[in-house]
Amino acid sequence: MPGGGPEMDDYMETLKDEEDALWENVECNRHMLSRYINPAKLTPYLRQCKVIDEQDEDEVLNAPMLPSKINRAGRLLDILHTKGQRGYVVFLESLEFYYPELYKLVTGKEPTRRFSTIVVEEGHEGLTHFLMNEVIKLQQQMKAKDLQRCELLARLRQLEDEKKQMTLTRVELLTFQERYYKMKEERDSYNDELVKVKDDNYNLAMRYAQLSEEKNMAVMRSRDLQLEIDQLKHRLNKMEEECKLERNQSLKLKNDIENRPKKEQVLELERENEMLKTKNQELQSIIQAGKRSLPDSDKAILDILEHDRKEALEDRQELVNRIYNLQEEARQAEELRDKYLEEKEDLELKCSTLGKDCEMYKHRMNTVMLQLEEVERERDQAFHSRDEAQTQYSQCLIEKDKYRKQIRELEEKNDEMRIEMVRREACIVNLESKLRRLSKDSNNLDQSLPRNLPVTIISQDFGDASPRTNGQEADDSSTSEESPEDSKYFLPYHPPQRRMNLKGIQLQRAKS
Rank of each mutant, 00 (worst) to 15 (best):
R114L: 01
E19R: 10
T82F: 04
A63L: 02
D10V: 11
A63N: 14
L33Y: 01
K137Y: 15
I118D: 15
V26D: 00
G126F: 14
E18W: 12
R86V: 13
M12G: 11
N29S: 07
L127Q: 08
A40E: 03
R47D: 04
H81G: 03
I136H: 02
Q141C: 03
G5P: 11
R30I: 02
D17Y: 13
G4W: 12
P100A: 14
T43P: 09
T82H: 11
E54V: 11
G5Q: 14
Y45N: 07
L61S: 01
D56V: 04
V51E: 07
M65Y: 04
L15K: 12
M142T: 13
T128G: 08
N38M: 05
F115M: 10
Y11D: 04
L77T: 02
N38V: 01
L76S: 01
E19D: 13
L76T: 03
E13F: 07
A73I: 03
L66C: 04
C28R: 08
P44T: 08
E19Q: 11
E96N: 03
K145W: 12
Q55I: 13
V26R: 04
Q48C: 10
K50V: 08
H31V: 14
I52T: 09
V135L: 06
P64L: 05
I37W: 02
K50Y: 12
P100S: 00
Y36T: 10
L80I: 06
E121G: 14
C28M: 01
P100K: 00
T117V: 01
K143P: 06
H31P: 02
I52C: 09
I136Q: 14
E24K: 06
V60E: 05
L33Q: 03
E54H: 10
E93F: 00
G123I: 15
L22F: 09
Q48N: 10
T107C: 00
R113N: 06
L15M: 10
K41V: 04
E57M: 04
Q48M: 06
S116G: 14
V119D: 15
Y36W: 07
I52S: 08
L105P: 00
H31M: 08
R30S: 00
D146A: 10
R47C: 08
E54F: 10
E96F: 00
V51H: 11
C49S: 15
T107S: 03
Y88G: 10
N62G: 02
H129E: 07
G87M: 06
N71K: 04
S34Q: 04
G126S: 13
E121Q: 08
G84W: 03
E13W: 13
E27H: 03
M65D: 01
E93L: 03
Y103S: 00
V106R: 00
E18L: 11
E18R: 11
K104S: 00
G74S: 03
N71T: 11
T14A: 10
C49H: 15
D58L: 07
P6L: 12
P44G: 11
G4H: 08
A73H: 02
M142C: 14
C28G: 10
G108E: 07
